[in-house]
Amino acid sequence: MKKSYKSGLIVSVIAAAAFMVSASAQAFTHDRVTLRDASGAALAAVDTDADGIGDAVPATAPAYSAKETCGACHAYDAIERHSFHAQLGANEHKGWNAWAMGNWNSIATKGKPWVQSPGHAGKW
């Protein structure tokens, strides 16, 4: 079955903008995604009917891992390494003693070997 969409006649600048908003606001539902813990193992259901296969959500379970759960389909490592929101300066790490080694000319690092990056992470 082909899917057809009648987007209508869009002839004005405003209407076009409105259409774009509508398109960008479309939600995509992720369902039935298997939850995995930090080791990559699928989170196990509790076997209430003793048939050897879990069938109910347990009272507690390991926290799901975004790296393993999302990363099962998406390139978690590549995304994490290439996002400044995640890196926060980790990718600009200038070594464990940046001032002493001449690796960073920030006066803020002088006498502070614990300052190692111009990003947020490392400036503690």
């Binding site: 539902t29 992720h30 369902d31 039935r32 995604v33 939850l35 699928a42 989170l43 959500v57």
Partner: peptide, 15 residues
């Protein structure tokens, strides 16, 4: 819970 006894997001999923 799927047929393999694994926890999954429910039918309503996440947007």
């Amino acid at each position: 819970v799927n047929s393999s006894g694994e926890l999954t997001l429910g039918a309503t999923g996440l947007n």
